[in-house]
Amino acid sequence: MAYPEKLLAEDEEIVRHLHPHWLTVFWPIVAFLLIVGGASFGAAVIPVGSNQGLYRLLVIATAVVLLIAFVVVPVLRWRTTHYVVTTHRLLFRQGILARHGRDIGLSRITDVSYRQSVWERLINSGTLIIESAGDSGATVLRQIPDSDGVQQLLNHMIEEDADRRAQENAGYIRGEEPYRPGEGGHPTTRF
């Protein structure tokens, strides 16, 4: 599912859209297999009798509750967590029903670093630590796929954003139209 374009500014483009690493849904998938297998076995071993239907219904109801708690909720949490790098900012959104998020303008980011354990290096995942100007402190994004690549991308986008802002400011000083990426070429300079 693509990130909604309506949430972006007019001249803003999505550069990379990520969810947490796919291994975050590994244990919910294992839980799904165990719950379905256990419920099937439990329903099959209920002895024949007048209450057999009621007991099977209780086994199925218990399985459904367990599936919701240990499978559906974690998978929805994974699916509704968005890390989006655009040409102007970094967006973080999370939540199934209640949502929270944070937008950090690329011009406000002062440092981007990443951390990987040995296991995370093997699966190409990690943690991004993003420090920005202001009182809110560092933003820590966990289970980021290709965390070192995303860190390099963010540093590159920060440099491009600074260049774009410098060109816009130079254009305004000279009375030119501002440079907009993707509109063909760089602004012309008048001497």
Rank of each mutant, 00 (worst) to 15 (best):
K6C: 10
L7F: 15
E10W: 09
D11S: 11
V15L: 10
H19W: 07
H21V: 00
L23M: 13
V25L: 07
V30Q: 01
A31E: 00
A31G: 02
I35R: 01
I35M: 01
I35S: 02
V36I: 11
S40F: 12
G53Y: 12
L54P: 04
R56N: 11
L58T: 04
A61E: 09
A63K: 02
L67E: 08
L67P: 00
L67C: 08
I68C: 02
A69E: 09
P74H: 02
L76K: 03
R77D: 12
W78M: 05
W78V: 05
Y83H: 15
V85Q: 12
R89F: 06
L91S: 04
F92H: 15
R93K: 09
Q94L: 08
Q94F: 07
A98F: 15
H100D: 14
R102H: 08
I104K: 03
T110R: 14
S113T: 13
Y114R: 02
R115Q: 15
Q116M: 06
S117V: 00
E120M: 08
R121C: 02
R121G: 09
I123F: 09
S125K: 02
T127Y: 05
L128G: 02
S132Y: 04
A133T: 14
A133N: 08
G134T: 00
G134P: 05
G137Q: 05
I144D: 06
S147F: 06
G149M: 05
V150C: 02
Q152K: 15
H156R: 15
M157Q: 15
M157T: 09
E159H: 12
E160H: 08
R165H: 10
E168P: 00
G171W: 03
G171R: 03
E176C: 07
E176H: 14
E177S: 12
Y179G: 00
G182T: 08
G184P: 01
T189K: 13
T189M: 14
F191C: 06
